[in-house]
Amino acid sequence: MSVFLTACGDDGGGKATGATNPSTNNTTNDDTTEGTAGETSTGGPDQTTSGTTSTTAPEPTSSATGGESTTTDGSSFITPPDGGGGAKECDQWTQDCPEGQKCMPYSGDGDNAWESLKCTPVMENPGQVGDPCTVEGSGVSGIDNCDKGNMCWDVVEGVGVCVALCVGSPDAPDCAAPMTSCLISNDGVLTLCLPFCDPLLQDCPGDDLCIPNPQNPDAFLCVLDASGEEGQEYDACEYINACDKGFTCANPELAVECDAMAIGCCVAFCDMTEAGVCTGQNAECLAWYEMGQAPPGFENVGVCGIPQ
């Protein structure tokens, strides 16, 4: 199962972002994704998740409003937290389940998207953050061998890795684990702490993408690649993790080569110090951060586009 992040609406300026927390990619039946931005420890070269600056690059709009849609290959889309969704038998923020159980997101309607919460058993000798893990059934069953407050993520053929759930509250999400950012999605039931990364280095493990946190585009985090056969430069996109590594789903206004009627368009990250890195017509490397607002080490991060 592949998880897709929705792109967020265009506020007239600002970064390409998503309206949901986080998620990533999974394959066929067994994958999951990550959480929202909260004030947390630094990632990359002192990257933090608490910034609220905007960039010169306009963001994409999105028609996704909730629910779960499916691609032709059976992949699942992560949808914005809109207060609706399935049954919520417990609170993953307070972990209010009985002793020996934990509150977990799961799919209660038989599809491949998390829309509900329930209490599930904490297994004997449970896994901690970073440990390999297994799930019972599929990656959306809600039953795994990770410890309380953790979830088995990026599940392929029943095996994944334990990642932490966000702490705090929906209004003040945070991550206890260093070098991670909280991503919240799927009506608020999926709350994962995902690792920080550098969009110019694309230093995420395996095929994971380094893209802006949909809830805080000043922070970049690792998510699963849901682009499939699409996602090349100037391809249309509706979800922020639907572009290939090194690209981000942005407003089509950024490039003549983009379909102006598309919800979003895959455009390249670029290094502000390198001349001629952008190949599009009239395109320049536009600063991701406002002057003086970039975290240390991220001053050169840009995105290719036509100045607005």
Rank of each mutant, 00 (worst) to 15 (best):
L183M: 13
G110L: 08
N300V: 09
D91Y: 08
D144T: 10
G35M: 01
E229F: 15
K88F: 01
S185R: 04
D109K: 10
G264K: 10
T20H: 05
S50E: 08
C166V: 00
S63L: 04
C266L: 04
T70E: 10
C8E: 04
N282T: 03
D171L: 10
Q101N: 03
C152Y: 12
C249F: 02
L286C: 05
G44V: 14
C237Y: 04
Y106A: 01
V161G: 12
E99Y: 06
S138A: 05
S185N: 07
P132R: 12
A262M: 00
S2R: 14
S63R: 08
V159P: 00
S2T: 05
G13C: 05
Q47R: 00
C249S: 08
A250S: 14
D91H: 05
Y106M: 00
T6G: 07
A242Q: 15
D187T: 01
W288D: 03
N112R: 12
G74Y: 04
S76Q: 13
Q232E: 10
N21R: 08
E257A: 15
T180H: 05
D225V: 01
D91Q: 04
T70P: 05
G100C: 07
P22Q: 04
G108F: 06
D218Y: 05
C162W: 14
N21C: 06
D259E: 14
A287H: 15
C243K: 14
W93K: 05
P105I: 02
S54T: 14
E290C: 05
M261G: 04
S107H: 07
G137A: 14
N21P: 07
W288E: 03
P199I: 00
Q92K: 02
T70D: 11
G228P: 06
E229N: 10
E59Q: 13
C119S: 04
S50Y: 01
S116H: 08
S107Y: 09
I306F: 01
T94Y: 00
T61Y: 06
T70I: 13
M291E: 14
D109H: 09
G44L: 11
A16D: 01
N21E: 01
A262T: 14
D208F: 12
I306A: 09
N186Y: 07
G142M: 12
L192W: 06
G35R: 08
A177D: 15
N21V: 08
G84V: 07
K118Y: 00
D218G: 12
P80W: 12
T40W: 03
S138M: 10
I184T: 02
